[in-house]
Structure formats: C-alpha cells, structure tokens
Amino acid sequence: MPDPRLSRLALGVTLFRPDPDQVARVRAQAGSGFAAVIAFDNGGLAAEAAERLARAGVTLLSAGTNLGIAEALNRIAGAARDAGADTLLLLDQDSEPPADLAVTLLAALDRLRGAGCPVAVVGPAPAPAAGHKPPAYPPRPGAPARDGLAPVQFLATSGSLIDLAAFAQVGPFRADFFIDGVELEWCFRAWSRGHGCYLARDAAIPHRVGGGVIRACGVTMPRQPLFRMATYLRNAVYAWRLPHVPRRWKLAQLAYLPLQAGLYWADAGFRPAVVLRLLAAARDGALGRLGPPHDLPQDAPQDPPQDPPQDPPQDPPQDPPKDPP
C-alpha cells in the first residue's frame, strides 16, 4: 500500500526525445500513489508514446518546442500546485531512483520542519555512474547541520524534493538560463531568502552528465557538446552580476572558469572555432545576453543540467560572505 504522505507529493519528469525504456519508467510511476505524475515534453516525444502516458494517468505538458529545462521545471511546478501537491520530486528521463527515494526525502523534510528550519529543497547524495563524474555539493558556510542533514550551496534538480510553498517565495527557475547553472542560481537565491538546501546522506541516486570525462591538471569535468559548455560559461559569467551569489563563489569561479575553458579547448584539439565560441559566450554573459543558445541542436537529445560541468571549486580562505545563511 502506498505511503499516505505520497498523496501530497507530485512527481515531475522532464523529457527530450526519450527512448521506449525511458517512457516506460515514467508510465510505471503513475500507480505509485503520488498526487500527480507530470511529464514535460521538450521535444521528440512520439505521438504513440504520448498516448500511452496519458492512458496511464500521466499529466503530459508540452509547448511544441524546446523551452529549456528551467521553463519545463517551472511549468511542472505550476501543474503540481494545481494538482493539490505541497511537495514536488523532480527527476529526468535517465533517472533510476531507488524505490524508497520519495519516502526517504519526505522524512528528511519532516525532520527539518520539525527543527524549525526553513527549507527549499532536500536531495539525495550522488551515487557513482560508470563513465561519468558524480557531482559534489559544497557545504554552505555558516549553516549548521540539522539532524544528520547537511546544508549545501546547491543540489542537482534531478532527484530533489522541493517544498512548493518555499518555491513560491524563492521564485521560479530562471528561464533565460535555459539549461546550465539553473540549479546553482536558484539554490543561491533560496539561501538568500532564508530557505535552505540540504543533502540527505541516507539516500543516493546516480547522475549522468555529458559523454565521458575530461581529466587534466587535477581537474575532472564532463565532456559536453560545445553549446552546453558555452551556455554554462555564459551563465556562470552572468552570475557574477547577481547579488545573491556569494562573493567567495564568484572569486573562486573567476579563477576556475578560464581553467575549465582552457581544458575544454585542449580536449577539442585547440580548434579556433571552439575558443571563439567560448569567448563569445563569456562576452554574452558579461553583457546579459541570455536565452536559448543560438547553436542549440534541434535533432539531438540534451542531457539535463544535473550539475555544473566542473569540480565545484572550494571556497577560498576568507571571511564568510554577508549574505543571509
């Protein structure tokens, strides 16, 4: 019998050209006792697959075009509220969560609420996936652990449980970021508005980003398509303008982004077109030119932005920032 707490939880899944096994995993969730199972099609879902999802009871959203991961998540959150849910568990089409993930995260959220801790999101620890770099979530300076739950700067969206009341106060994901850095900006904004982001170490989920890894100079980063690396770089540069992004994070990124870009260029064979695209992306970020990348491929699937394409830099030794913990 499904846990009664699941009746107030919606499950949201983002889709982009899913294969039959991925569609089947979404269909299988429809009978799990959730308030709603909501899928957003960002393109490429076959009509027959859409019909099978609808017959299974999945709420299928689509705009007929690729709106990016951030807008897809925002529309899923709106549909979850309309379904009467107060929490939202986010997954992507590649996710293979443990059967007890939702219950474990709900219990973690209850412990945080019981401790009087305002929380925006609680998520699982990253489990290793063969051939992929697992994300690392740096701790939030000045924020104490709560009942075994670790405060972190940010969490990947996939596998995370969002408190929808907090989501309404923090605001939606930035649609103009489109795909990369979406979760970083939102989590930093959540912390600045008094809502924490917490890691539940008693739950884990594999994360897969990119196609292989780049290893050099002691750095490991996913090997991404050029438009993904450029969009990440653009959004990271733009984030320097945002007051809620901690100063120490900006300083670390100031040193780290050129290293990442250089390693990516080297991995691409030092092709001039690659470095010119990355330089243009940095310029666009500095000038605030956001939105869908102009070289977004329309005929190939995109990995969701589960984590930034980098080893998150460690905070440099200096006084903690003055933004609210």
Rank of each mutant, 00 (worst) to 15 (best):
L88N: 00
S7E: 11
D147E: 15
W186K: 02
R5G: 06
A28L: 07
G194E: 14
V275R: 03
P20Q: 07
W191S: 02
A268W: 02
D295S: 09
G194V: 15
V213Q: 08
A77Q: 09
V58F: 15
L105F: 05
R81Q: 08
R248M: 14
A130C: 00
L279K: 04
A47C: 02
L9G: 11
L53E: 06
E183S: 12
W240S: 11
G31K: 09
T231H: 11
Y256I: 02
Y264S: 12
P324D: 04
E185Y: 08
P324M: 04
G211F: 06
R189A: 12
L161M: 12
I205E: 13
H294R: 10
R223I: 03
H132F: 05
R193N: 00
A286D: 00
A273L: 04
W265E: 05
D307G: 14
L15N: 10
P97K: 11
V275G: 07
P128F: 15
A36Q: 13
R189E: 01
L61G: 01
L155Q: 09
A216G: 14
S7W: 04
L233W: 08
A36R: 13
R111L: 11
P151L: 11
L112T: 04
R75H: 06
L106F: 07
V152D: 03
Y264C: 06
L106S: 03
Q29V: 06
L67D: 03
R193W: 03
V58G: 14
E96A: 00
D94M: 01
A252I: 07
S95C: 11
D86W: 12
G269E: 02
D147I: 15
